[in-house]
Design a binder for these strands. Structure first.
Lengths: 230, 230
DNA sequence: CGCTCCGTTGAAACGGTTCAACCCACGTGG
DNA sequence: CCACGTGGGTTGAACCGTTTCAACGGAGCG
């Protein structure tokens, strides 16, 4: 796959002209990272943003005591590190290679130069940021208004919906990492999974997940609290 | 103050040409709301966004049980409701007049038409969205990684920094609302304020706030947990 | 005066975390 | 091939911060 192919396949660059795609190709820089390597740290000066060509990248916050809150786990085709491109400030979170991965780096100044020339590129970027904002509002809602069972149920249903098999799928991350996405710790996650299994809502074996009672799960996801007798 | 004056004074429209300002004036619609009136609800179709000319607007999420999590309290000159303009979806939260207020409404389609023509307008909008994302990442961090004392300390220091008198200022919202901003309830806030006062960190009388021990407060804001003997 | 609204206080209950122990699958090296 | 260590996951018991529920106080106002 050529550089141009990757750029054409990137959702952010959808609908742009051939000319624009080529211009993007000219300013993009190829960078590779090994699993566990940090791409940037919170507070680093933001020199540009990244597009994932292959592999996955974890975006997260870190508390002084070392506990992490995962904001996203980014996949192929997705963008990260774009915030400081437009605020002119530092990266607001950490980015770390979750697997070996190769990324495209777009330097801030060259990219804003392109934006100045093509409104459709900026509209795509506006859409991307807005979507991300939308996602964050629901994350905030979940963290402050729902309990762990509610967040877990929502996450499982989310996975289920975008997997080919509606009722049966694999966790694409470790349970420890899932705990961090849900804003909790492995112990708590384990207990909640256990309780859900005991109530016949799900079946959990390793990274193997089965949804048995979708209706109740949806109820929990929306109500957010309690996980008792129905 | 004319419509044009308001538009010129809006940060989002800073640095635009006279021509652009006039074009914005032409598409803006004036709308007034009484205190407590809802501007839009979560799930409403997003027809456009708003700029505050006077008064204040509360943006918040609501749990099924009725508990609210405030995302912002917007002031004069600020923008809200812009997310669905670019995602094409619904408003992701509620907006309610916190005081009597008059707003400028910008219809989605007319506005994106302007953006298509002027890259500098879109760059301003990109900067705005990025700032908002940045703010949300710290809100998420606070909610999931810090306790109430940490969030309160951070908020007080924030207020202190942007008030004319560094050590002495007024809460611009009720304590009940502050509790909702901090993702907690009035009772808990009251207790934490009480404890901070007993430890000589602050003095709190009504909406009157005094910071006595800024250093320890900063420590709490960053460490996020515990509020004990130093 | 008596009403309501907001803030405060206390006691009990709850959800989640902490800490510790333990299990198991896995890979490594003797 | 077995011994060993390691990392992810699970389980139990104690602990802690926050919420819940209920009662109360004070300020503002008809």
């Amino acid at each position: 796959m050529t550089l141009l192919d990757h750029i054409v396949a990137t959702p952010l660059f959808e609908g742009l002209s051939r000319r624009q795609h080529e211009a993007l190709t000219r300013i993009a820089v190829n960078r590779s990272y090994k699993k566990g390597q940090t791409v940037f740290s919170e507070g680093d000066k933001g020199e540009g943003f990244y597009v994932i060509m292959s592999g996955r990248v974890k975006i997260f916050k870190l508390s002084p005591e070392g506990k992490e809150q995962i904001l996203h786990v980014m996949d192929r085709g997705q963008i990260f590190g774009e915030v400081p491109v437009f605020t002119g400030k530092e990266y607001p979170a950490y980015a770390e290679a979750y697997t070996n991965c190769s990324l495209l780096f777009f330097p801030k100044d060259l990219f804003t130069g392109l934006i100045r020339k093509d409104p459709s590129l900026s509209l795509n970027m506006l859409a991307l940021l807005s979507q991300r904002l939308r996602r964050f509002t629901t994350l905030i809602e979940d963290l402050s208004l729902k309990g762990v069972p509610g967040r877990l149920a929502a996450y499982l249903l989310h996975l289920s919906n975008k997997s080919s098999n509606r009722e049966h799928f694999e966790l694409d991350i470790s349970k420890g990492q899932l705990a961090s996405i849900l804003g909790t710790i492995p112990e708590t996650l384990s207990r909640v999974l256990g309780k859900m299994a005991k109530q016949g809502l799900i079946r959990s074996k390793g990274s193997h997940l089965t949804i048995l009672d979708r209706a109740t799960l949806e109820l929990i996801a929306v109500k957010g609290k309690k996980l008792d007798n129905s």
